[in-house]
């Protein structure tokens, strides 16, 4: 990684969040596609298995792994190129299925690994240090996830360690697809001040929706800043809680329309809105919808995984008499 790369900051938050949530490393599976962002699983949670797959196709590999071992906690890292271009189809369909995973997009507006071409999330009119101006409309991955009915959608910034940690901890506790679009500056190719994803620009134009805190289910007296003003509590699947302290307008995380409004208004004003945009804990996950047996399928023995010899005799017989 280049020194100062936003992706490194996110790796540190992942380590922190996994540790704070008390996750045993063997229970985690690290998934990624291809890109600078997707290389980062080599640098965090070394005691967990991981799969650095192919460009844009991490969601399908995660799907297969999730089907045969639903007890794993999938923490996936992707880039904006990996997700919004080559992997768009798989991203969309993983959301549709409400795959039980954390999907982190390390969004820098460029293809870092192939040396700085524009990605599909970059703002119209963006200009890199060198080269042409981007003339196409950006794809907002949060707006897209919201439109697709994603059960957990958040946006954050690699430099907002506290906010990102809380969001990530909540995403890990969430049962279902949790998308966190993290603005993550590429210091080498897109950190010029006018770039919307440079450190300086984000610092100036971050519209924080609320202050996010996370309280895990096992230690309710964890150190949390008790909000002074208005706040909301969301209880997650595992009993842990998200606390959202209102600042300015009162964002309703259960309302997809206000979430979309927040995203589009920020975009109109050339700002980034950060925080928990939407949450719905009631949507069944893929494995629930499919009605899988309770034990992870990879743990089934001969008897559980292969029908009996008698059953085959019966099958043959049925064909003969039909």
């Amino acid at each position: 990684m280049c020194p100062g790369c936003g992706h490194d900051q996110i790796s540190n938050v992942i380590i922190q969040a996994a540790w704070e949530n008390g996750l045993p490393p063997e229970g985690i599976a690290k998934m990624s596609g291809i890109g600078c962002s997707s290389k980062t699983p080599a640098y965090f949670l070394g005691k967990s298995h991981g799969f650095n797959t192919v460009h844009g196709r991490m969601p399908s590999v995660t799907t297969g792994a999730n089907m045969v071992n639903k007890d794993l906690t999938f923490i996936a890292v992707s880039g904006d190129g990996d997700t919004a271009s080559i992997g768009m189809g798989q991203f969309v369909h993983a959301i549709r299925r409400n795959l039980n995973m954390v999907y982190i997009i390390e969004n820098n507006g460029v293809y870092g690994l192939t040396k700085g071409q524009y990605s599909a999330t970059v703002e119209k009119g963006s200009k890199k240090k060198k080269g042409a101006v981007n003339t196409q409309n950006p794809i907002d991955l949060c707006a897209m996830a919201l439109n697709l009915g994603c059960s957990f959608v958040a946006r954050s910034f690699s430099g907002s360690k506290k906010q990102l940690t809380a969001l990530l901890r909540a995403a890990i506790s969430h049962k279902g697809m949790a998308v966190i679009d993290v603005i993550s500056p590429c210091v080498t190719f897109a950190n010029n001040d006018e770039s919307y994803r440079s450190y300086n620009y984000v610092k100036e134009n971050d519209e924080v929706l609320h202050i996010v805190d996370y309280i895990s289910h096992y230690s309710p007296i964890e150190e949390v800043d008790i909000p002074e003003g208005q706040f909301k509590e969301i209880e997650l699947f595992d009993g842990s809680k998200i606390i959202l302290e209102t600042i300015g307008s009162n964002h309703d995380t259960t309302d997809v329309v206000s979430a979309l409004t927040a995203v589009h208004e920020a975009e109109r004003n050339d700002k980034h809105v950060t925080g928990l945009l939407y949450y719905n804990g009631e949507i069944p996950t893929t494995t629930e919808t499919l009605g899988l047996t309770n034990a992870p399928l990879c743990s089934l023995n001969e008897e559980e995984g292969r029908p009996s010899e008698e059953s085959l005799i019966e099958v043959n017989q049925r064909f003969r008499s039909s």
Partner: peptide, 8 residues
């Protein structure tokens, strides 16, 4: 591949 990797 995901299934095979995870032991299924």
């Amino acid at each position: 591949l995901g299934a095979g990797w995870a032991g299924g």
